[in-house]
């Protein structure tokens, strides 16, 4: 047979490509549930790492099921909120249900287009609140989790991940603990024009709501900065309500304290 004829070439390549596509589709379908379970455990471990319950390596060591169990034991509530901070749904804590990266992607699309959003707020029993951020890096999506204290303002930890940023440069948002460590102790300043900044060339001395960008990874840093700010925007009302509530409780506690003091003095 003439293997160099046009007809043969076209038919041959078509068959090969269709065959390969079929094999890949089959394998992907068979392995899908296992991969999804791994991805879910990964997401949960990222949330737990951001909330400060342990190093990222710790969760890998104890394994998927123990990680999910730890999450279920320590989560207080995980609700879905819209742009007005109204609760629109619940996640199943006994199943350690969390928003997957693809769900974040869908919500990121909604945030960008100003359509209705439904985003998760994870509140742990130790009062730490975690919310996700999602956006575009240089080569692909970047996302992460930011944990704030019960004043809904002070950041206690953060964890970031990416799909294909350059290892050693943009990849540092995930791999460099020093980059993540900068976030702890900073505040989200909702009254400022930009609630949080990742500053190229270094954050100004004493800036409470800024961290240093990664040298050599300007685009990734910018992308992460935009991701954080657009998601803080989406959570704006939720954060404000949380701040007001925590201030109210604080004031209440102080009032009770001074009241009891006064009673005691009498």
């Amino acid at each position: 047979m003439n293997t160099n004829s046009n007809t043969y070439t076209v038919i041959y390549t078509t068959i090969v490509v269709v065959l390969v596509a079929a094999i890949l589709a089959f394998v992907s379908q068979k392995l899908g549930p296992m991969q999804a379970a791994n991805e879910k455990a990964e997401t949960v471990s990222q949330i737990l790492t951001a909330a400060g319950f342990g190093d990222k390596e710790h969760w890998a060591e104890i394994g998927n099921s123990a990680t999910l169990e730890f999450y279920s034991d320590n989560i207080e509530s995980s609700i879905l909120v819209d742009i007005n901070a109204d609760q629109t749904g619940n996640l199943d804590n006994t199943q350690a249900q969390v928003y997957s990266t693809s769900q974040l992607k869908a919500q990121n699309y909604n945030i960008k287009n100003g359509t209705d959003i439904q985003v998760p707020v994870y509140q742990f029993k130790n009062k730490v609140v975690v919310f996700p951020v999602y956006g575009a890096g240089l080569w692909g999506p970047v996302w992460g989790y930011i944990a704030v204290a019960d004043d809904f303002k002070t950041i206690v930890g953060a964890y970031f991940d990416h799909e294909g940023e350059t290892p050693g440069l943009g990849g540092k948002i995930k791999d460099d603990p020093a980059f993540r460590a900068q976030f702890a102790g900073k505040v989200i300043d909702l009254s400022a024009e930009k609630p949080f900044s990742i500053v190229r060339g270094g954050a100004p001395e004493g800036a409470a709501n800024a961290v240093d960008a990664i040298t050599g990874a300007t685009m990734t840093s910018k992308g992460l900065d935009a991701a954080i700010n657009s998601w803080i925007g989406a959570y704006g009302k939720t954060l404000l309500q949380g701040q007001a509530a925590s201030e109210f409780i604080k004031a209440l506690e102080e009032a009770i304290q001074s009241e009891t003091k006064a009673v005691e003095e009498e």
Partner: peptide
């Protein structure tokens, strides 16, 4: 892709 898929599937 097969190798990658299998690596992703196991804990």
């Amino acid at each position: 892709i097969l190798v990658d898929q299998f690596l992703k599937a196991f804990e």
